[in-house]
Simulated assay, not measured.
Amino acid sequence: MDTRKPDIFDRLMHLPVLNIFEPFYKKHKEMLLYLFFGGLTFVISVITYAFFNVSLGMNELVANIFSWILAVLFAFFTNRIWVFDGKTNGAKEFFVQMMNFFGGRVATLVVEEVILFVFITKLGFGSMVVKIAAQIIVIVLNYVISKLWVFRK
Protein backbone atom coordinates (compact mmCIF):
# COMPACT_ATOMS: atom_id res chain seq x y z
CA MET A 1 0.00 0.00 0.00
CA ASP A 2 1.23 3.48 -0.86
CA THR A 3 1.77 5.49 2.34
CA ARG A 4 3.19 8.61 0.71
CA LYS A 5 1.46 11.94 1.14
CA PRO A 6 -0.65 12.73 -1.96
CA ASP A 7 1.11 15.13 -4.33
CA ILE A 8 -0.57 17.77 -6.47
CA PHE A 9 -1.25 15.26 -9.25
CA ASP A 10 -2.87 12.80 -6.84
CA ARG A 11 -5.09 15.62 -5.55
CA LEU A 12 -6.04 16.63 -9.10
CA MET A 13 -7.32 13.12 -9.72
CA HIS A 14 -9.86 13.62 -6.92
CA LEU A 15 -11.53 16.51 -8.78
CA PRO A 16 -14.91 15.94 -10.39
CA VAL A 17 -14.61 14.56 -13.93
CA LEU A 18 -10.91 13.76 -13.46
CA ASN A 19 -11.72 11.21 -10.76
CA ILE A 20 -13.01 8.79 -13.41
CA PHE A 21 -9.39 8.52 -14.62
CA GLU A 22 -7.98 7.89 -11.13
CA PRO A 23 -7.67 4.09 -11.37
CA PHE A 24 -5.78 4.38 -14.67
CA TYR A 25 -3.66 7.19 -13.23
CA LYS A 26 -2.76 5.20 -10.11
CA LYS A 27 -1.78 2.17 -12.17
CA HIS A 28 0.37 4.15 -14.63
CA LYS A 29 1.35 7.19 -12.54
CA GLU A 30 5.10 7.01 -13.11
CA MET A 31 4.81 6.66 -16.89
CA LEU A 32 2.13 9.36 -17.15
CA LEU A 33 4.15 11.82 -15.10
CA TYR A 34 7.29 10.98 -17.08
CA LEU A 35 5.42 11.69 -20.31
CA PHE A 36 4.08 14.95 -18.86
CA PHE A 37 7.40 16.22 -17.53
CA GLY A 38 9.30 14.67 -20.42
CA GLY A 39 7.00 16.65 -22.70
CA LEU A 40 7.73 19.85 -20.80
CA THR A 41 11.45 19.08 -20.91
CA PHE A 42 11.10 18.47 -24.67
CA VAL A 43 9.42 21.89 -25.06
CA ILE A 44 12.14 23.60 -23.00
CA SER A 45 14.86 21.89 -25.02
CA VAL A 46 13.35 22.68 -28.43
CA ILE A 47 12.42 26.29 -27.61
CA THR A 48 15.78 27.14 -26.06
CA TYR A 49 17.57 25.38 -28.94
CA ALA A 50 15.54 27.44 -31.42
CA PHE A 51 16.40 30.59 -29.51
CA PHE A 52 20.13 29.87 -29.46
CA ASN A 53 20.40 28.37 -32.95
CA VAL A 54 17.76 30.14 -35.03
CA SER A 55 17.36 33.48 -33.25
CA LEU A 56 20.97 34.03 -32.16
CA GLY A 57 22.58 32.13 -35.05
CA MET A 58 24.63 29.96 -32.73
CA ASN A 59 26.23 26.78 -34.09
CA GLU A 60 23.80 23.85 -33.73
CA LEU A 61 26.12 21.80 -31.53
CA VAL A 62 26.84 24.70 -29.17
CA ALA A 63 23.17 25.74 -29.10
CA ASN A 64 22.26 22.16 -28.22
CA ILE A 65 24.63 22.14 -25.24
CA PHE A 66 23.11 25.35 -23.86
CA SER A 67 19.56 24.04 -24.33
CA TRP A 68 20.64 20.72 -22.76
CA ILE A 69 21.85 22.47 -19.59
CA LEU A 70 18.51 24.21 -19.08
CA ALA A 71 16.43 21.14 -19.92
CA VAL A 72 18.45 18.80 -17.71
CA LEU A 73 18.21 21.10 -14.70
CA PHE A 74 14.43 21.18 -15.11
CA ALA A 75 14.26 17.42 -15.71
CA PHE A 76 16.34 16.50 -12.68
CA PHE A 77 14.13 18.25 -10.19
CA THR A 78 10.81 17.26 -11.77
CA ASN A 79 11.90 13.62 -12.19
CA ARG A 80 13.30 13.49 -8.67
CA ILE A 81 10.28 15.05 -6.99
CA TRP A 82 7.26 13.83 -8.98
CA VAL A 83 8.13 11.09 -11.45
CA PHE A 84 10.40 8.70 -9.57
CA ASP A 85 9.95 9.99 -6.00
CA GLY A 86 13.73 9.98 -5.59
CA LYS A 87 14.04 10.83 -1.92
CA THR A 88 17.54 10.64 -0.49
CA ASN A 89 19.00 10.57 3.02
CA GLY A 90 21.40 13.45 3.30
CA ALA A 91 23.59 15.52 1.04
CA LYS A 92 25.87 12.67 0.00
CA GLU A 93 23.02 10.52 -1.37
CA PHE A 94 21.51 13.57 -3.09
CA PHE A 95 24.85 14.37 -4.72
CA VAL A 96 25.31 10.76 -5.90
CA GLN A 97 21.78 10.74 -7.31
CA MET A 98 22.37 14.06 -9.08
CA MET A 99 25.70 12.90 -10.51
CA ASN A 100 24.09 9.66 -11.76
CA PHE A 101 21.29 11.66 -13.36
CA PHE A 102 23.66 14.11 -15.05
CA GLY A 103 25.98 11.25 -16.06
CA GLY A 104 23.11 9.49 -17.79
CA ARG A 105 22.06 12.72 -19.45
CA VAL A 106 25.63 13.34 -20.66
CA ALA A 107 25.50 9.94 -22.35
CA THR A 108 22.32 10.88 -24.21
CA LEU A 109 23.75 14.33 -24.95
CA VAL A 110 26.57 12.57 -26.83
CA VAL A 111 23.98 10.56 -28.78
CA GLU A 112 22.07 13.75 -29.59
CA GLU A 113 25.19 15.67 -30.58
CA VAL A 114 26.19 12.85 -32.96
CA ILE A 115 22.71 12.90 -34.52
CA LEU A 116 22.86 16.69 -34.96
CA PHE A 117 26.40 16.56 -36.34
CA VAL A 118 25.61 13.86 -38.90
CA PHE A 119 22.21 15.10 -40.06
CA ILE A 120 22.63 18.88 -39.81
CA THR A 121 26.34 19.59 -40.11
CA LYS A 122 27.28 16.85 -42.57
CA LEU A 123 24.06 16.10 -44.47
CA GLY A 124 22.44 19.54 -44.35
CA PHE A 125 19.01 18.55 -43.01
CA GLY A 126 16.84 21.22 -41.35
CA SER A 127 18.03 22.08 -37.88
CA MET A 128 14.67 22.07 -36.10
CA VAL A 129 13.42 18.85 -37.73
CA VAL A 130 16.57 17.00 -36.69
CA LYS A 131 16.48 18.48 -33.18
CA ILE A 132 12.88 17.29 -32.68
CA ALA A 133 13.64 13.79 -34.02
CA ALA A 134 16.75 13.55 -31.84
CA GLN A 135 14.74 14.63 -28.78
CA ILE A 136 12.29 11.76 -29.26
CA ILE A 137 15.16 9.26 -29.23
CA VAL A 138 16.72 10.97 -26.21
CA ILE A 139 13.46 10.98 -24.21
CA VAL A 140 13.18 7.20 -24.52
CA LEU A 141 16.84 6.64 -23.61
CA ASN A 142 16.57 9.03 -20.66
CA TYR A 143 13.57 7.18 -19.25
CA VAL A 144 15.40 3.86 -19.39
CA ILE A 145 18.50 5.35 -17.73
CA SER A 146 16.47 7.08 -15.01
CA LYS A 147 14.30 4.06 -14.29
CA LEU A 148 17.01 1.41 -14.27
CA TRP A 149 19.98 3.35 -12.91
CA VAL A 150 19.37 6.75 -11.33
CA PHE A 151 16.09 6.34 -9.43
CA ARG A 152 15.93 2.56 -9.04
CA LYS A 153 14.22 1.46 -5.88
Results as ranks from 00 to 15, higher is better:
S55L: 08
H14I: 07
K92G: 03
F51E: 01
A134H: 01
L123I: 04
V96W: 07
L148H: 08
N79I: 05
F101S: 10
K87R: 15
V129R: 11
L18C: 05
T121P: 00
V111N: 06
L35Q: 05
L61A: 06
N100H: 07
F36Q: 07
V96A: 08
R4E: 15
F74T: 06
A71C: 14
R152C: 02
V17A: 14
I145G: 01
T48N: 01
S146M: 13
A75S: 14
A91R: 09
I120P: 12
V110I: 15
K122W: 12
V144Q: 03
T48K: 02
L33G: 00
F9V: 13
Y49P: 04
I47Y: 11
V114K: 01
F84E: 01
M58D: 04
S67Y: 01
N142E: 02
I115W: 01
V114Q: 04
T78Y: 05
L109T: 04
E22P: 02
G39S: 07
I69N: 02
F101I: 11
N59D: 15
V138C: 08
M128N: 09
F21W: 08
F37S: 03
L70V: 12
K26A: 08
P6T: 05
V17E: 07
K87V: 12
N100S: 05
V72Q: 14
R80M: 13
I137G: 02
F119C: 13
K131W: 01
K87M: 10
Y25T: 05
V138A: 08
N59L: 06
F21M: 12
F77S: 05
V138L: 06
I65G: 00
V140M: 09
F42M: 12
D2R: 10
I65T: 15
D2S: 11
G86C: 06
S127H: 09
G124A: 05
D7T: 10
W68V: 10
R11L: 15
M1C: 02
N53I: 02
E113S: 15
P6G: 13
Y34S: 03
A75F: 07
F101R: 00
V114M: 14
I132L: 10
F24R: 03
V46W: 15
H28D: 08
F102I: 08
P6V: 15
F24I: 14
N19F: 11
V96R: 09
E30P: 00
L56T: 15
I137V: 15
K131C: 06
K131L: 04
D7A: 07
L56Q: 08
F36H: 06
F119Y: 13
A71I: 11
L148E: 03
V130M: 12
M99W: 09
F9T: 12
F42E: 05
L61S: 14
K122S: 05
V83D: 03
Y49R: 02
F36T: 11
V129K: 12
I132S: 07
T108G: 03
N89F: 00
V140R: 01
P16A: 06
F117H: 10
D2G: 03
V144A: 09
M98C: 11
L18H: 10
M98W: 10
L32H: 01
L35R: 07
W149K: 00
L32D: 02
V96E: 11
Q97E: 13
V43A: 11
L35Y: 05
F74C: 00
